[in-house]
Design a protein around this nucleic acid. Structure first.
Length: 600
DNA sequence: GCCGTTTTCGGCCCGACTGTTTTCAGTCG
């Protein structure tokens, strides 16, 4: 599948054109890149079947780009792009990933200081050479250094959303081997942490060598870092796997084969977290037991002569048994951070956290009305396919012009389309009717007002409001701004409440305790945004919200139907924040859900 | 460079914010 490679090149061409100040073309190239990236079919197949005419049939692709795609499919290169690269061989992706640096600044940095990558830029900024450039200054230089520091902090870690699809693919492949009896990912992947360092698999097998051979020769393996009889380590190519469409770094994957009788203990051990395991081991020691990756053991026949104890395994094949034998209720992997879960498991007071199948609908989905990829009907069909009972269409409102935000009139027209779809019976399902809810994602303006008239909001089933501008507003003002929006009787949900983007930017400044108090008082729901780059609220904030009695909704913020699969990441985040089914409004059937919104 | 219920040209990608600039360019959502 060459789609992602081609999309990437088109995207870079857009950046080069932007650099030269060319109007409109960058937009066309970017649009084409997105079209190729979201294509379900292999571009190569489309070309083979229908030639260049078929390529031109893809929306956003015209004669010129189709020719370039053809050139790539035939020769593996696009001359037009190579020319740009010759003129400026900068690692563009790296440079423009720094907040505040775009194509034009990148060009000046290259031309004046011959800066090709982040390392060189950092050095130049530290020597105060950047501030002297035309169009730059003290503050820009400082921002660049801060931006680089932020990127360095998140370096070497990958978004769960980038990694999990690969993990599942590999897991399925291994599972299909007759030599593999048991398999599970371990480590932070199993704990569903928002970012992942590397991937671990545990396997039970009667023929470990066969499994090792298979593992090191899988497609995507670019380097074998080590291979023994029961343990192997490989570097996987992350080509085209980055959620942002960029190159992505390569990541490491380990596999180890353990004896069946130790599988549960090994799973426990390698799942971590380290802190959780240390606490667990302490409990074992207090009970006179020993816990390691091979099992839970009790001392047998302690000899008076001071000879070594004989250890007898009392648990280890099954992970749940390990916890049970230690006197703990089972702790779900997502909760194993030594943040009170062990104490609760000892007392038997662990909450029964929300399950991955408890979600009944997705309330934050964009349609083609606001520039999303799919029609309302397609989104609804996808929601049905996920087993949902309802979907909330939450198109952007007018302030977000670039996202084709809808004004009052367009929103009204969209509402009529939803009414028709709900009435025409096409979306009928076996046990009752599937329902499309009328929503929107309105903007909380800097003064806390909503960017669209209350009369328009009143006509909707529910309203999401979110901050999309003036992200650097000072803490107190930002807090007031959001609270003011929550006091609007039409606003039911606050989307991505802290605004962070993983690996790209920090949260905006808010007093979260004040937000929680206001949410509770105004019965406003806070969103857990499932987008792998957001996962906002984060686990700690989910837990604080739950403790404060604030309800949450787990939404995907899908701009395209496949993104509805992101729900898994949001549920994982909720689980990591100890949320129960009761805390999440979209676990409720439609009737009860409607009662959670402010208006009846 | 793409597109068309405005169809082969002319519109599309807007507006806020930041920082640098003295009248505006670049970045971001």
């Amino acid at each position: 599948m060459k789609n992602q490679e081609i999309a990437k090149i088109l995207h870079y061409i857009a950046q080069y054109l932007e650099m030269d100040g060319v109007a409109f073309k960058p937009f066309a190239y970017n649009k084409a890149a997105i079209a190729i990236n979201t294509l379900e079919e292999d571009v190569d197949d489309i070309y083979k079947k229908g030639g260049i005419k078929a390529l031109e049939g893809i929306p956003g692709i015209g004669q010129s780009i189709a020719q370039k795609i053809e050139e790539y499919l035939k020769t593996g290169k696009i001359k037009y792009y190579e020319e740009f690269r010759k003129k400026m061989p900068t690692n563009l992706e790296e440079i423009v990933s720094i907040e505040g640096v775009g194509p034009k600044k990148a060009k000046i940095l290259y031309q004046k200081l011959e800066i090709n990558n982040m390392k060189e830029l950092k050095k130049a900024a530290e020597l105060h050479r950047v501030a002297l450039l035309f169009g730059f200054g003290e503050k820009t230089e400082k921002n660049i250094l801060e931006g680089i520091a932020f990127l360095e902090r998140s370096k070497g870690r990958f978004l769960l959303g980038e990694i999990l699809p690969v993990v599942k693919e590999v897991q399925e492949k291994l599972k299909s081997l007759k030599e593999v009896e048991e398999i599970s990912p371990a480590g932070s992947v199993r704990r569903m942490k928002e970012t992942i360092g590397d991937v671990d698999f545990l396997v039970v097998s009667n023929n470990p060598e066969k499994v090792m051979d298979f593992f090191v020769s899988m497609p995507g393996v670019i380097k074998v870092l080590g291979k023994g009889p029961t343990k192997a380590s490989v570097r996987m190519s992350a080509q085209g796997r980055s959620a942002s469409g960029g190159k992505g770094q390569d990541f490491d994957m380990d596999i180890r084969v353990v004896p069946k009788k130790s599988y549960g203990a090994a799973l426990q051990y390698f799942t971590g977290s380290k802190e959780h395991n240390i606490s667990l081991r302490k409990i074992a020691i207090d009970k006179g037991l020993k816990l390691n990756e091979y099992g839970l053991f009790s001392a047998q026949g302690r000899s008076a002569s001071g000879k070594k104890n004989q250890w007898k395994q009392i648990a280890g094949e099954d992970e749940k048994e390990v916890y049970k034998a230690l006197g703990l209720s089972y702790v779900e992997p997502e909760m194993r951070e030594n943040k009170g879960e062990i104490e609760a498991a000892l007392k038997g007071t662990l909450p029964k956290i929300i399950g991955y199948n408890d979600i009944k609908g997705d309330l934050h989905c964009h349609s083609d009305w606001d520039g999303g990829e799919n029609s309302i009907e397609e989104m609804a069909e996808a929601a049905k396919g996920m087993g949902h009972e309802y979907i909330g269409i939450s198109d952007h409102t007018k302030f977000l012009k670039i996202e084709n935000g809808l004004d009052e009139r367009k929103l009204e027209q969209r509402n009529r389309e939803i009414d028709m779809l709900n009435l025409n019976g096409k979306l009928q399902v076996a046990d009752g009717k599937f329902k499309i809810l009328k929503g929107c994602e309105a903007n909380i303006l800097p003064d806390g007002l909503i960017d669209i008239k209350d009369e328009a909001l009143k006509k909707l089933d529910f309203v999401i409001a979110g901050v999309h501008s003036a992200l650097k507003t000072p803490k107190e003002k930002m807090t007031e701004r959001i609270i003011k929006a929550m006091r609007n009787p039409n606003v039911d949900i606050i989307s991505h409440p802290t605004g962070r983007i993983l690996k790209r930017r920090d949260e905006y400044q808010i007093d979260f305790d004040k937000i929680l108090r206001a949410a509770r008082e105004t019965k406003t729901i806070l969103e857990i945004n499932s987008c792998p780059e957001r996962l906002d609220l984060n686990d700690q904030n989910v837990r604080r919200a739950k403790e404060a009695g604030v309800k949450m909704a787990i939404n995907t913020d899908s701009h395209e139907k496949h993104q509805m699969r992101f729900m898994e990441f949001g549920v994982a985040q909720a689980r990591r924040g100890w949320a129960e089914k009761e805390d999440i409004v979209n676990t409720k059937p439609l009737n009860s859900l409607m009662g959670m919104f402010k208006k009846d």
